[in-house]
């Protein structure tokens, strides 16, 4: 994700900043560029979809639209968690379609100086993981900055492959 310009009217700020929505997953803190976040809604009834890929938790009714929701815990290999009221669904948009991502809790919107963001170290993240944009140090905390769009397109690519294989076997 290219560094975003500061909002108009904030040009006087000397240091370039990034606004991120910070949320927790397990004991870790993650962040997403606020531009990727459409809306954050309380956790609600998620209806599982049979035969959907593992990382898809199910579908929700968002104002009359049916929207798939992904479980980021699953994506990152954390163990599954029972639904609790602190959880939130972060809605993002990929190619014009809304997709939700479940997170444990949303802590705050933070302004992070771009200088404090370091590129991801491949030792931790692995080479093929493009969806980690960097790691920001905020005080003593480390925040892993995610690119939601990439996570989803990644997932989508894998799904399409799986589904094609599945139908090839069937037919």
């Amino acid at each position: 994700m290219p560094a975003r310009e500061a909002t108009p009217g904030r040009e006087t700020v000397i240091e370039k900043e990034k606004q991120i929505v910070a949320f927790s997953l397990g004991s870790e803190t993650y962040g997403v560029d606020i531009a990727q976040v459409r809306e954050i809604i309380p956790i609600q009834k998620i209806v599982p979809v049979p035969r959907a890929p593992d990382f898809v938790e199910g579908i929700i009714n968002l104002r009359g639209r049916v929207i798939p929701v992904l479980d980021l815990r699953h994506h990152f290999g954390f163990e599954k968690k029972k639904q609790d009221p602190d959880q939130r669904i972060v809605l993002t948009e990929v190619d014009g379609e809304s997709i939700g991502v479940i997170v444990d809790s949303v802590s705050s919107v933070l302004r992070i100086p771009e200088a404090s963001i370091e590129p991801p170290a491949s030792v931790i993240t692995g080479d093929d993981i493009e969806y980690i944009q960097g790691i920001a140090k905020v005080g003593s905390n480390l925040i892993v900055l995610l690119d939601l769009t990439k996570i989803i397109s990644d997932a989508e690519k894998r799904t399409l492959k799986e589904v094609d294989l599945a139908s090839a076997v069937v037919r």
């Binding site: 979809v49 035969r51 959907a52 890929p53 049916v66 929207i67 997709i99 989803i152 599945a166």
Partner: peptide
């Protein structure tokens, strides 16, 4: 009948969703 989006559009035996 409502669409479920690309991610769930090609599941075998699943025609869509409704509310």
């Amino acid at each position: 009948v409502k669409e479920m989006g690309r991610l769930l559009s090609r599941l075998k035996g699943i025609a869509g969703a409704t509310i």
